[in-house]
Nucleic acid binder design. Structure first.
Lengths: 222, 222
DNA sequence: TGACAGGATTCACATATTGTTCACAAAATC
DNA sequence: GATTTTGTGAACAATATGTGAATCCTGTCA
């Protein structure tokens, strides 16, 4: 797994690089956008992390350039939490957005989540905790044994998977799995969650309840 | 079965080689395109796996060179999921295309599937479990005895065969076997599946139902 | 033409699996 | 402690699939 990180502040870069390496990634460093673009052509990257404020070529330009030729997941680092920047970034094609100061843990989680999401598009076998999903075969494996999920349970799991570590409201889940024109009991979902939970317990994955909102799927430390 | 793998990243190459050997293939390794072309002339290959990004001679050039003299199945490994590359690759004569990161299981399946497909073109005898299919003769043999399949059953079996371990929706099956303009009863397929199942039971092959989706053909351990 | 054969399709019913609802329990929040 | 939200088990409803038999085609052949 190759990661490219472009950040002009060396101290911060060093810390992030240290953590990335600890997680087993191969890290390519750049101290500005220009260097980043050079490095980007050196090796196929699996994820790119760009600081917005950089000398020579800034993060936005760099992002725009990369997007001309690649769909690699891009995370932007920025000092301000302004909604404007965020929207601007997504328009340019950034996939995620981390506001400084951030914890390494947070950054790592975003990195993993993006890699996981992009892996889904290309490949058919997803993996997290003790669970593997073979999308093409429509199969879920836990500890080598097949997990027998009903269609709704499978759909739910896939939806959570794609939105790992994101609180999903009941409405969103209903809209996605049941369709926006569903008008049955909102509590139906609870029952499915219950059953899915009981099937994936001890898997290293978990569906947490977010009171007043809905649910959140998380993969505990790997 | 001889396999040639050209991949410059040694770690990755080692892993793939390990799996290929485990599957019983004779493996020839190359760390770049030039070496690959050399090796390719050393022995008759049954399948070639080429990384796109390689020093000296890259995967595309290598693919083009090989195609000048051979119709061996070629799988390209690439880091980006761009449709452009894919199209480009197929134009050059690549047969399949695996995007990094990939699981070994996935790669092995593609390898097997290609070998199977090319076998179909040249030798016309496919084999799995206790079933042999002589494509040219349009015959299916199980345990030495001929299986009498109706045309639809034969088509179904071939379609499943080509999509081993993949969940196929009813729609896909209908489109492929009956044509996209079929508008009869969707349940017709069930009856054919039933009959095919009863004919291939005890063959080591099995048509599993994937509830809410369709069917999945699997070959139990060989 | 008309009987026949093989296969394809449809249909009705049996079964199995899944989805929904509801009432009450448990937990969190106010 | 009252109120709101969520968890849970069981009953029931709805769906999807399996299956056998009847029917419909579409050729063939006398």
């Amino acid at each position: 797994m190759n990661v490219l990180i472009a950040e002009d502040e060396q101290k911060l870069r060093d810390i992030v690089v240290k953590y990335l390496k600890k997680e087993g990634y191969t890290v390519f460093e750049a101290e500005n956008g220009e260097k980043a673009l050079e490095k980007f052509n050196e090796a196929p990257m699996d994820i790119v992390i760009l600081d917005v404020m950089m000398p020579v070529v800034d993060g936005w330009s760099c992002c725009r350039e990369i997007r001309k030729t690649s769909e690699v997941p891009i995370i932007m680092l920025t000092a301000r939490s302004e909604e404007n920047d965020r929207v601007f970034g997504f328009e340019l094609g950034a996939d995620d957005y981390v506001t400084k100061p951030f914890s390494n843990r947070e950054l790592m989680m975003r990195v993993k989540s993006l890699i996981r999401r992009s892996a889904k598009d290309n490949e058919t076998v997803l993996e997290a905790g003790k669970i593997k999903i073979n999308v093409r075969a429509h199969r879920v494996i836990m500890d080598g044994k097949e997990l027998e999920l009903s269609p709704k349970e499978y759909d739910l799991l896939m939806f959570f998977w794609e939105n790992c570590d994101i609180a999903l409201s009941r409405e969103k889940i209903i809209d996605k799995i049941w369709g926006y024109d569903y008008y049955g009991d909102m509590r139906t979902i609870d029952t499915h969650i219950k059953r899915l939970r009981s099937k994936i317990k001890d898997s290293g994955c978990e569906i947490q309840t977010v009171r007043g909102v809905g649910y959140r799927f998380v993969v505990s430390e790997e």
